[in-house]
């Protein structure tokens, strides 16, 4: 199987690298200082395929700390806020779109 890292990476617009934390599964984003954050605002933003590949390569190397890193699209609001680029990423960022049963 070809690893995604060996394929040419194409991104359309600003992107981040995201994964889930190994110990508890919490959503995390790769930061510019080679770590992870649970806050999308801290994520390193990449804008071209080569930088995206470098960030993903570095993230994938942390197999102990993170599970299943991948490149996800984001949009940048006028005020600079980073927003998830699709519904799936929005749900990962802000949680389920329904009320949780235990809160009803």
């Amino acid at each position: 199987m070809t690893s995604p890292l060996q394929k040419k990476i194409k991104i359309h617009g600003p992107s981040v690298v995201t994964a889930n934390r190994t110990s508890d599964g919490v959503v995390i984003w790769r930061t510019a200082d080679h770590g992870w954050s649970t806050d999308l605002d801290d994520a390193a933003i990449v804008r071209d395929g080569e930088t995206a590949r470098a960030l993903l390569t570095e993230a994938t190397a942390d197999d102990v700390g993170a599970v299943g890193p991948y490149i996800a699209p984001v949009t940048i609001a006028d005020n600079g806020t980073v927003l998830p680029g699709n519904l799936r990423e929005q749900i990962r960022n802000t949680g389920v779109t329904i009320e949780l049963p235990a809160q009803v």
Binding site: N20, D24, G25, V26, V27, V67, G68, R92, G95, V96
Partner: peptide, 13 residues
């Protein structure tokens, strides 16, 4: 982990 019922979903295991 799968053989023991543990998935990784969007937000958590």
């Amino acid at each position: 982990r799968l053989m023991n019922g543990v998935y990784l979903q969007l937000h958590a295991y």
